[in-house]
Nucleic acid binder design. Sequence first.
DNA 1: CTGTTAGCGCATTCAA
DNA 2: TTGAATGCGCTAACAG
Lengths: 333, 333
Amino acid sequence: MVGIDDVARAAGVSTATVSRALSGRGPVSTATRERVLVAAEELGYVVSAAASSLATGRARAVGVVVPFLDRWFFSTVLAGISDALVREGYDITLYSVSGDPVERHRVFDDHLRRRRIDAVITIALELDAEESASLRGLGVPIVAIAGPNPLLTTLTVDDLAVGRLATDHLLALGHRHLVHIGADAATAAGSTVPGLRRRGFVEQLAAAGITDAVVEPADFTIEGGSAAATRALTAANPPTALFAASDEMAIGAILAARELGLRVPEDVSIVGVDGHELGRWFSLTTVDQFARGQGGRAAEAVLAALDGAEPGRGLGTLPFELVDRGSTAAMAR
Amino acid sequence: MVGIDDVARAAGVSTATVSRALSGRGPVSTATRERVLVAAEELGYVVSAAASSLATGRARAVGVVVPFLDRWFFSTVLAGISDALVREGYDITLYSVSGDPVERHRVFDDHLRRRRIDAVITIALELDAEESASLRGLGVPIVAIAGPNPLLTTLTVDDLAVGRLATDHLLALGHRHLVHIGADAATAAGSTVPGLRRRGFVEQLAAAGITDAVVEPADFTIEGGSAAATRALTAANPPTALFAASDEMAIGAILAARELGLRVPEDVSIVGVDGHELGRWFSLTTVDQFARGQGGRAAEAVLAALDGAEPGRGLGTLPFELVDRGSTAAMAR
DNA sequence: CTGTTAGCGCATTCAA
DNA sequence: TTGAATGCGCTAACAG
């Protein structure tokens, strides 16, 4: 492998000058810089991440921690992050943490601590106190996407408002008997994404004078949404509208409704959250949260922090928007 | 940050001993090792990746290069890789390369060359000669998933056989007028995944005495599949069966057929390839290729290579299997 | 089995 | 503007 001294020799300068010319830090005459650049190019020299990192303390890499890789939202956000980061020359080191405590511990207390990354982005990660502390102990900028985490700098949509918006949409159409598919009662207490969406639902109903908000818990998969919708729609007094806390569940609900011989939206209105690419194929009305853009924003926030900008908590709120594609309609009278 | 000398001091030994005790390389008495382990644990010591990498030449990280992050197949394979790799203490460094030549060049000739990774896994990447050379020049084990790349060690399903199996399934049901949705003519020439599936289709038809194989090119998205199916089904002499080269396109085809008022499978049989999780919701018959397992296998292959096993080319073939879920039926007579 | 020593490849002082 | 020297934190010889 060609090293910095090969370049130095080829350019007839010292390694210090090569380093300065290539990194842009420190004074180098234009002519010298040119010679170094040419020599480096010709030799195909690339600086060793390990050596550079050891000498500077900067790794030119950002760690991204996700709970799932194979779900649409996460891979889409990740794509947004990747786009933005690679443009700035940063590598992405990917950490997927399941629910297994042993594995989580290994990621938080070993992998992430190897000083391989200059910053961390977490996506919709629910962290316990110990894990949060562990992250903060890293001493690097951390940006948490999705879910207001009081312990971290967050970049998140106002999920309470999202829940309200979706609910309001249904109420405005005249629906009075709604069911929410999402977080269970236990989760609703916390400030997690599912919990907030559920609370938005409950609060908005209450504001409309409806106090018996019904919630069918589900696990954010198509299958879970389908099962929850089936339960709701086959109950004694079935709802005329469903609000699913994710598009995947909403799609499951649409499929379940069809299976039950119900027409969407004539017999039941259904609204989701996400902006899943599949939504248009189901004419799904949804609250789009622009997942890919979230990744981009997070990457920018991290880069800004690495440039020295000291971001405050609650770095920013992300946009969301109701997209009416036709799976909701005014209540038949 | 706590360093190796802090541990050494705490344990009353030299840094060399700490290194040996923690890494497991070299002889250490059980008692000493125990003391070191305790001291390291108490201090929360984690070895610096940069320093260790610089000293050993090993980075404990594997690079994964993908063309897309936000498509089901890729994120699913990635999840499989991640699972297997994290268990062995390896980090994943993720590189997403688009079609943009400038960006590709930067990834192949800069990022990947930083000596940050001990091995590379590529997923369904179509590389030009220069890129292949660049990868091989890295001097690390490389495993290419999907697509027989003559220049790399590959781990791939026999996509020619996949194409034949799907086609055969339709032929066995009595269909004689089939259309393939997949690679265009230009792509068919090469040994890419889409090209091979298409050739499997054409060859199997030929074997059955059908020489006018019809192919509708599409781009492996739901939308592309839908458009291609619409073209095929509205043609003068519409086919009774469609073979889509991916489940996403097959789902698009099902949606298109429905839109045209055609019943699946009564009016048209449709078969896909992948084993996409969404398939079951469309009763999609498909050739499952166990994407997640592919990731696992690739990770294992890479780990074996890092353990010194010198793998030959064409490392192995991956399993695939026809899953009949009901979107195909015997031809109505 | 353990400690001492000498780098790994680069970035940054400090002098010139 | 440039070069020589030093050290980033760790590992691998080598001696003991």
